[in-house]
């Protein structure tokens, strides 16, 4: 099976969907002639032309709203945000318009819209460029939110997001763009709402999404080697819709859970997972559910400190040892 990067996997998904469906149009800042600020759209403008791959001015509210209008008319716009942090400039268009129009029209309208881009800290760019708004967006009925951790998932989820008939927010991660993984050449998609057990284990469940999954896998490896603890790693992949069954099945098997989350702790995605576990698997638990989140302050610039602000394998191991 070919081994490609997360970036190439996303690029392949976009290229395949552009070729498959005339209604797919890629719109965003620097997506065309510049080949994408993070090169996710590299080569697409050359191959598909200015009609299908469209550079915008720096106007997030304007072009996100344009995407909503185009989706109302049946196009399938894939809107790139250079950073999900920039979504805050266009939040009205995402939450009020993409998120609520179907409802407020009594179901007369649907919006086959994808909004994608990186949503992560850890790159020393300061607080304004380091937001992880998957919890805000997951808090908005009407929107769907996915967050792939591997090249395989990135391609499969992106293709499904484009084919879905509701607005889907795809939260990527610049720190994962260069990660390598096996991705089959043949066509495949991954349904939204299906989690993936990335590592089987029996002593504790580490549950997260996006890059936190990669950190959890690293911690699981060390837990096995250094402490003889068998950790299961559950990758949510999709935040809304959420695969409750896989999460609960894992907890019922291991009886313990540490949630790993690059969101800030207050009302982060992991807070929702925690309440779900205590409500539906309380009797299966042998220890309190605990969390390793981003430290609760705006993203710090200072490089050595920011490394510690995000969940690390050390912090995960510490939490695991406290309950195992």
């Amino acid at each position: 099976m070919p081994v490609i990067t997360y970036r190439q996997a996303l690029n392949a998904a976009l290229a395949e969907e552009l070729a498959r469906d005339e209604n797919v149009v890629i719109i965003g800042e620097e997506v065309a002639e510049y080949n994408g600020a993070y090169k996710i759209t590299e080569g697409l403008w050359k191959k598909f032309g200015s009609r299908r791959v469209v550079d915008t001015p720096i106007s997030e509210g304007g072009f996100l709203g344009l995407g909503v209008g185009a989706a109302m008319m049946g196009l399938r716009p894939v809107m790139e945000l250079m950073f999900w942090s920039f979504a805050y400039v266009g939040f009205d268009q995402i939450v009020n318009n993409a998120g609520c129009i179907r409802y407020m029209s009594g179901g007369l309208i649907n919006l086959p819209l994808v909004i994608r881009g990186p949503a992560n800290g850890g790159t020393n760019v300061g607080a304004t460029h380091s937001h992880t708004p998957e919890n805000f967006l997951g808090n908005t009925p009407g929107l769907k939110v996915v967050s792939p951790a591997t090249p395989y998932d990135a391609k499969g989820l992106m293709k499904t997001a484009i084919r879905d008939n509701d607005p889907v927010c795809v939260m990527e991660n610049t720190l994962l763009y260069g990660d390598l993984g096996e991705v089959p050449e043949e066509e495949y998609t991954i349904p939204l709402g299906v989690a993936d057990v990335k590592r089987e284990g029996k002593d504790i469940s580490l549950i997260g999404h996006g890059r936190a999954v990669i950190t959890a896998l690293r911690a699981a490896e060390r837990l096995a080697e250094e402490f003889d603890i068998s950790a299961e790693v559950v990758d949510l992949r999709s935040i809304r819709p959420l695969d409750e069954e896989t999460i609960l099945a894992s907890v019922r098997k291991t009886h313990r859970a540490v949630l790993v989350d690059e969101n800030k702790p207050f009302c982060g995605v992991s807070a929702q997972i925690a309440t779900m576990i205590q409500e539906y698997a309380f009797d299966d638990l042998d220890a309190p559910v605990t969390r390793v989140c981003a430290l609760d302050a705006p993203a710090i610039y200072s490089p050595p400190l920011e490394e510690h602000q995000l969940p690390t394998a050390d912090r995960i191991i510490e939490k695991v040892l406290a309950v195992c």
């Binding site: 709203g65 209008g69 989706a71 109302m72 008319m73 049946g74």
Partner: peptide, 24 residues
């Protein structure tokens, strides 16, 4: 196509509707 509650929030949507006409 509405009927929108946020002041000026509909203006880029109208732009997008017209964009879709041109696209097609």
């Amino acid at each position: 196509w509405g009927g929108h509650g946020i002041v000026a929030g509909q203006t880029p949507i109208g732009l997008g509707i017209a964009f879709a006409l041109k696209y097609r």
